[in-house]
Amino acid sequence: MSSTPETITDTLREEIISRPDMILDDRDLMQALIAANERSMGGNIVDLRGIAMERLESRLDRLEDTHRSVIAAAYENLAGTNQIHRAILRMLDPIAFEPFLHDLGGEVADILRVDMVRLVLESAQNDSDPAIRRLGDVLSVAEPGFIEEYLSGGSGAPQRQVTLRQLHEGDARIYGDKAGWMRSEACLKLDFGAGRLPGLLVMGSEDPHMFTPQQGTDLLAFFAGVFERAMRRWLS
């Protein structure tokens, strides 16, 4: 009993000849052709061209992975920029001080997708002022030096304008009864101008990966700069 090798049809042959890129662009087909060529040469021949192609394919895979990572990072950065811009526009909407602060813990926090936003102001006076009590859901008053101590953990080391860190739990002086739920925070140090004590804007999240030290801080630094200028208007 004999058999004859199968041959491709004339139609398929003409299609391949007229459109060779159809095969060249198909990685699986090219690998099958290369493997068939290696088998036809036998096991005692080293195919340097095949080795070179394998290395090129590996390099191409790495380049494609890098390309996808760059595109993903660009989209993420664009989304973050739009998010910060929307939060700033909403923050600047109120024309009175109390709604301005209340919105921080409301719609601004929702836009930024954080669980809490707290403003800490240092003052030599106590927090018994009725206006301060009305803003207790977003505003805390602390004694001078508290902000540096909170940011440095008592080490006294100079702190950057934006500090991102993960938490075992939040500080009750900042988050109150919700401190136990906080797992990460962004601390934005505020400068209200010469002769004024500093402030601190704290964004807390129950997600431990929301804020980490490896993340960029440019957008949050921009947000802090806008907030500083808005607060100077109210404090003047």
Rank of each mutant, 00 (worst) to 15 (best):
P94Y: 11
A96T: 06
A96E: 13
A96C: 03
L101R: 10
H102Y: 08
D103N: 15
G105A: 11
G105I: 03
G106P: 00
G106E: 10
V108N: 06
A109W: 08
I111M: 06
I111D: 04
L112N: 09
R113K: 15
R113T: 07
V114M: 03
V114A: 05
V114C: 10
D115Y: 11
D115A: 09
D115I: 02
M116K: 15
V117M: 15
R118M: 14
V120A: 12
V120P: 05
V120I: 15
L121F: 14
A124P: 00
D127F: 11
D129F: 06
D129R: 11
P130Q: 12
P130M: 08
A131L: 14
A131G: 11
A131E: 13
I132Y: 13
I132F: 12
I132Q: 12
R134E: 13
L135M: 15
D137L: 03
D137W: 06
V138C: 06
L139R: 14
L139C: 05
S140G: 07
V141M: 13
A142M: 14
A142L: 08
E143D: 05
I147C: 06
E148H: 08
E149L: 08
Y150G: 00
S152T: 09
S152K: 05
S152M: 07
S152H: 04
S152G: 03
G153D: 01
G154K: 07
S155K: 03
G156K: 09
P158N: 05
R160K: 14
V162C: 08
V162W: 10
V162S: 08
T163M: 12
L164T: 12
R165N: 01
R165D: 07
Q166N: 07
Q166T: 15
Q166P: 02
H168Q: 12
H168P: 00
H168T: 13
E169R: 15
R173E: 13
